[in-house]
Design a protein around this nucleic acid. Structure first.
Lengths: 144, 144
DNA sequence: AATTATCTTGGAATGATTCTAATCCTCACT
DNA sequence: AGTGAGGATTAGAATCATTCCAAGATAATT
């Protein structure tokens, strides 16, 4: 079941909520992320727009700006692996990431109920975490 | 109980094992990491050497080279937060990191027995992870 | 001592991202 | 329709961490 926010429609509403405009560029960038769920980099989003919808004129600077805006509006999360380029992910539900080193691809791992709570519980007294990030590294078989 | 490798003595042995020399610079850099367990960046290691041991002539390029070498020899781990500069950590035992956003400091969180195994067990079939990284973000109280 | 391999180094190059300052839209109000 | 204000987009410069490079220093081996 996909979150209601993860739709092109949610975008305008969410932007308006921050006093921002649902411009063509923002729609295009968000659309690419929704359709293309392999955690693309800014570069990849840019290339994707260039090749698949050459009519849409979007500059690199704008791709960065739009992605930043989407992150601010909590429509998109950014994920970093090592010092590689930042990747963008429209899956807002808590999840872990699996980085397949063989193919250099990333995909989401759903978390069983209670896992996050359990993780928080390992923190020593006085620690107040507002987010946890879990990254697996390895190889995922052909069955994936 | 500190791992036997986490000593200046372990360095020469471990380097020799890879056919590398225990140079002055490598000893200095490793020494800084051992004494300075707050996950310093390359820049911070460099500054530390400059101020605390001005006699040791070590260039920035060499700091990077030495850190890289130590990582290759499994004497040191590198840790990244967002896209900030890479940080270095001589704690080789599995542990999580807590990033205190108020003070922008990082510290290690020990993992209870079995947690890593449990985390691996949430992976869908066909996934073979060879490492897991856990990063908490938040603030740690004064008691820390 | 000569040869060879390893190390260190300053500075140039790289790559992702951010900044800047100019231009472009869009909308409300005349 | 015309104007003005603020938001949005853009090309290109600037930044920052890191890597690369080519040269010189150091140490080990012959």
């Amino acid at each position: 079941m996909r979150n209601v926010l993860e739709t092109p429609e949610g975008l305008a509403e969410r932007l308006a909520h921050s006093g921002l405009r649902p411009t063509e560029q923002r729609k295009v960038v968000y659309g690419v992320l929704l359709k293309n769920r392999n955690h693309p980099t800014a570069d990849e989003v840019f290339a994707h727009i260039r090749s698949e919808m050459p009519s849409a004129a979007v500059s690199m600077a704008t791709v960065y700006n739009c992605l930043e805006t989407l992150v601010q509006c909590n429509l998109v999360r950014q994920v970093n692996f090592e010092r590689g380029p930042t990747r963008y992910c429209p899956n807002l539900r808590p999840h872990a990431h699996f980085h397949d080193e063989a193919t250099d691809t990333i995909h989401d791992i759903e978390l069983p109920a209670g896992l996050l709570e359990q993780l928080h519980s390992i923190l020593p007294p006085g620690h107040q975490a507002n987010s946890v990030e879990i990254i697996f590294r390895g190889k995922s078989g052909p069955s994936s």
